[in-house]
Amino acid sequence: MSTTGAPVARRVITAWIYLIVLVFVLPFYWMVVLATHDNDSIYSFPPPLLPGGSLGANWSRLTEVVEVVRAMGNSILVASAHTVLVLLLSSLVGFGFSRFRSAPGARWMWRVVLATIFIPGLVGLIPWYVLIARLGWIDTLWPLIIPGAANGFAVFWMRQIITQTVPVDLYDAARIDGASDWRTYWTVVLPLIRPGLGALGIWTFMATWTAFQIPLIVLNSQENFTLPLALANLNTLYGQDTAAVMLGSVISVLPIFVAFLLAAKQFMAGLTAGALKG
């Protein structure tokens, strides 16, 4: 712990920072407040500051105009499937690059992987859309699951983790036992890098859960909407029903908040991995 600053200054600054925290989380608190009030009290002045008792009524109005449960199902399906795919693919590819450095071409192939990290995704958006259309994937969940699975950053990160955590001796031992490299990946590497997989997994899940632009472009019918899309649609069509819109927002934020509180450590490891390990 650092030792700068007089005790009084430290107390004052600490208090100020906690005050900033209060203002910082106020929008979330207020979202909950509005989600539990009827629209009359929301639009009255002064506005309500404590949660109210209209949660049930708001819920029935919300589910009347938007299939929020279905949208959540779509979001869970897309985020889970995409996360599993990213974890499997990037750990396998990362293992390949970590294990076989002397393969011809491995070095420049690795440079290609690194270069992909810096390419902004928007550049190929239009041909990407045309490709998705040709594949017959418009208005399906496939384009949200498959194409993004080749993630250069995830591969980079998995290679680092595998190189750091798996001792080379283990590979030799596995080879002596007669295990193939695929078997080694599955039975030796994957169990050892579980914390890294957890961090990458929660990060990927969150990024997929909050995605908006790609779902907006590829999904047309309400029944296929993911949560952010369903909510933006709700906001456009029924924006005056603030209570219902806020309840929908609460529902979309809640699962990821809970996941975050359960796995905050992995999550933060994931965020700093890019900047500090690179």
């Binding site: 929008p27 969150m206 859960w209 909050t210 995605a211 908006f212 949560l227 952010p228 899309l229 909510l231 933006a232 927002s249 979309s252 934020v253 990821i256 908040f257 975050f260």
Partner: peptide, 8 residues
């Protein structure tokens, strides 16, 4: 706030 969708 990073956990919430930008749209939300």
């Amino acid at each position: 706030p990073l956990l919430a969708a930008p749209a939300v």
